[in-house]
């Protein structure tokens, strides 16, 4: 009798394991094609630059089977809003967060918090003051500044008088661009930087400041604007003042207005980044971080100098005008 019960029990065990394993097969099936949830938090939820970032991120998301959430506050200055979005993502237990910090210092704490909850953070485009960031994907802003300086010196000659239109004082990107610019200019003892202004990323302020700069330094023959908004304001004001061509303008980024002014000869060249690649590579790095692969500490998405000669090169056209409308 004991033998029979033993046998029966073993049979039961085998059958139940088979059953359990059969029902379990569903779970293992999904594991092979896990969907990774990546939240991308940018400075602003609109604007061509960020839309292009999003486009690149979406291409990567499709390729790497990522459920991408693209978030950003209404306004680039809304630091609190960005911190809130970060907290949301931490609460939502994203697998990774890609952050383009509006403020280098103020987003450090929330970044550390994300790291505390074992959510890898990739910083994109703009760095954040946290050692817990896995990787930075973006432009080398210092080099971009140098590139702008090189071209401007080339345009204004070695006796140039140059104005700098930065956007936000204390902004990491702006500071680096300015630093790179200044360091390059310093090589030419006769080239002077006559004025450095900060337009608070406001077109109107940029216009006013440009007018002021031109008035105060009539000898100024070159001006560099270090971001998109500053570029539009500065270049348009130069055109309005009718000194286009005499005062050379180096812009940053490629909004349609800047491109138009480039064709008009007001803007001589513009330094463009590669937001599409920023988005793509940031997601790629995030996926690698989730998988626990080794990732580069810095991924440089290169900058390019665009002028009339190369703006119609097919590869540049796509960079300058990422959207088919």
């Amino acid at each position: 009798m004991r033998r029979v019960s033993l046998f029966k029990s073993s049979l039961l065990i085998v059958l139940s394991t088979v059953l359990v394993s059969c029902t379990g097969s569903g779970a293992t099936l999904h594991e092979s094609s896990t969907i990774r949830r990546v939240d991308m938090i940018v400075k602003m939820n609109h604007g061509d630059f960020w839309k292009t970032v999003k486009m690149g991120a979406e291409v990567a998301a499709k390729e790497y089977n990522v459920d991408l959430k693209f978030k950003g506050p209404q306004n680039e200055n809304d630091i609190e809003g960005q911190i809130q979005l970060m907290d949301e993502s931490i609460k939502g237990k994203a697998d990774a967060i890609i952050l383009s910090a509006s403020d280098y210092m103020k987003l450090a704490q929330v970044t550390d918090r994300a790291a505390f909850y074992k959510i890898p953070v990739i910083s994109m485009d703009s760095e954040v003051a946290s050692a817990r960031v896995k990787s930075f994907v973006g432009t080398n802003n210092y080099e971009a500044g140098q590139m702008a300086a090189e071209r401007l010196v080339m345009l204004t000659g070695e006796q140039g008088r140059i104005g700098v239109m930065n956007f936000v004082k204390g902004s990491k990107n702006g500071d680096e661009r300015e630093e790179g610019f200044m360091d390059y200019i310093a090589r030419y003892p006769d080239v002077r930087v006559v004025s450095v202004e900060y337009c608070e990323s406001d077109e109107q302020i940029a216009r006013t400041l440009t007018r002021k700069m031109v008035a105060e330094h009539p000898e100024m023959n070159g001006i560099v604007a270090l971001n998109e908004v500053a570029s539009i304001g500065t270049a348009e004001e130069i055109q309005k003042l009718g000194i286009g061509g005499r005062v050379k303008v180096i812009a940053f980024d490629s909004p349609d207005k800047v491109m138009e002014l480039l064709q008009e000869g007001i803007v001589q060249a513009t330094v463009i980044q590669n937001p599409f690649n920023n988005g793509y590579l940031a997601v790629q790095q995030a996926v690698k971080a989730i998988e626990g692969d080794d990732i580069q500490e810095r991924v440089d998405t290169h900058t390019k100098m665009i002028d009339l000669d190369n703006m119609l090169w097919p590869e540049n056209q796509k960079l300058l005008f990422p959207f088919v409308r």
Partner: peptide, 16 residues
């Protein structure tokens, strides 16, 4: 051989 349309055109131009 010019690209007319490619969803990853920019990546190709960037050599990625």
């Amino acid at each position: 051989g010019n690209i007319v349309y490619h969803p990853q055109q920019q990546l190709i131009y960037a050599g990625l």
